[in-house]
């Protein structure tokens, strides 16, 4: 029977194709063409760039270590100077005015990005890695371990996120100080958030794993004698990556929000983060005292600055999801 075989042969002669490369090219093309998603991508890129610049060229933009020390007032107390409103006079650092305690808001916001975005990336990526490993293995192996993992994620899902975040952060902080293990406040928050963030990815990964498990190519791999561990690593995990990537891009916005909310609720002080540390939630909570006196900009401007980033990353994630959705490609 040479019938069907010949069709395939003729079809493939035309040109060699690299489906993955072509797919990636197509994804990029579609994201760029989708105006909204592209805007999101640009916003995200600019924020990442700014956060990056802070580390590599501290002197280039005029902020960095110098500014952070200038934020620190004598004795760690506000110097009592009233905030000055946004102005174009006197240099770029005054564009958005000064805050309570007389620090320049613009450089402080820029300096915040490194902490906010850096830690958020750390949290989301670590959570994703743990989640992928746990989710894919438990989904593929099934049985008691799978059940156990699901129940554990159930528990994490049944506690409000913010409540869990502050509870874990404080209790972790307490145990660390008791055992005399030095850990910085932000690392502490990050650790707590990783502990409560991985179940999201574990669940996502598990559900995709379950659908991949019954697909033909896994059956083929099993038939060809491939081991289970090998199957998970070579077949399941690569298949899981792109939806997880979409989830990461959507979560990055939320985790920045949670991160700054935890700071805002005053946890930073409890776990020993300095009052003047540039972090967006921290800057906003510092401005809270002056709000009723009419000083709106120390709150308003950092909030907008944060909002633009979360909106940007969200529309990028949304666009990416649409683009990666096979239904949209046709």
């Amino acid at each position: 029977m040479q019938t069907t075989v010949s069709i395939f042969k003729r079809g493939t002669i035309q040109k060699k194709r690299h489906p993955k490369v072509e797919d990636a090219k197509e994804t990029i093309k579609l994201v760029v063409k989708n105006k909204v998603a592209f805007t999101g991508l640009v916003i995200t890129a600019v924020y990442l760039f700014l956060a990056f610049m802070d580390q590599v060229y501290p002197a280039y933009l005029g902020f960095g270590p110098n500014i952070i020390t200038s934020l620190l007032q004598v004795g760690g107390q506000p110097n009592g100077k009233f905030p000055t409103p946004p102005t174009t006079v006197g240099g770029w650092h005054l564009w958005f005015g000064t805050g309570l305690g007389h620090f320049d808001i613009f450089p402080a916001m820029l300096a915040s990005l490194r902490i906010d975005i850096g830690y958020s990336l750390l949290i989301v990526l670590s959570g994703a890695i743990i989640g992928i490993v746990v989710g894919s293995f438990s989904g593929y192996y099934g049985g008691v371990w799978d059940e156990l993992v699901m129940r554990i994620t159930d528990i994490f899902y049944s506690i409000p996120f913010i409540v869990m975040a502050i509870a874990f952060t404080t209790i972790l902080s307490f145990t660390f100080t008791q055992d005399n293990i030095p850990i910085s406040g932000f690392n502490l928050i990050a650790l707590a958030l990783i502990i409560i963030w991985w179940p999201t990815y574990a669940r996502l990964t598990r559900s995709i794993t379950l659908s991949l498990k019954s697909s033909r190519f896994i059956e083929a791999a099993i038939a060809s004698g491939s081991s289970r561990v090998r199957n998970v690593i070579t077949h399941i995990i690569p298949g899981v990556l792109s939806p997880v990537f979409v989830q990461i891009s959507l979560d990055l916005g939320s985790i920045v929000l949670v991160f700054s909310t935890v700071e805002f609720l005053g946890l930073g002080q409890i776990i020993g983060i300095n009052y003047y540390t540039p972090e967006l939630g921290n800057i906003i909570v510092n401005g809270q005292g002056g709000m009723l006196l009419g000083y709106w900009w120390p709150i308003f401007i950092p909030g907008i600055f944060l909002l633009i980033f979360t909106v940007g990353i969200n529309i990028f994630g949304d666009g990416l999801r649409d683009v990666l959705d096979p239904k949209m490609r046709r």
Binding site: G253, L257, S260, T261, F264, L265, G281, I284, V285, Q288, M291, I299, F300, G303, L306, L307, T310, V311, N314
Partner: peptide, 11 residues
């Protein structure tokens, strides 16, 4: 959806 809730409350 993307707005920090504490900021919205303050505003």
């Amino acid at each position: 959806y993307a707005m920090p809730i504490f900021w919205l409350a303050l505003m």
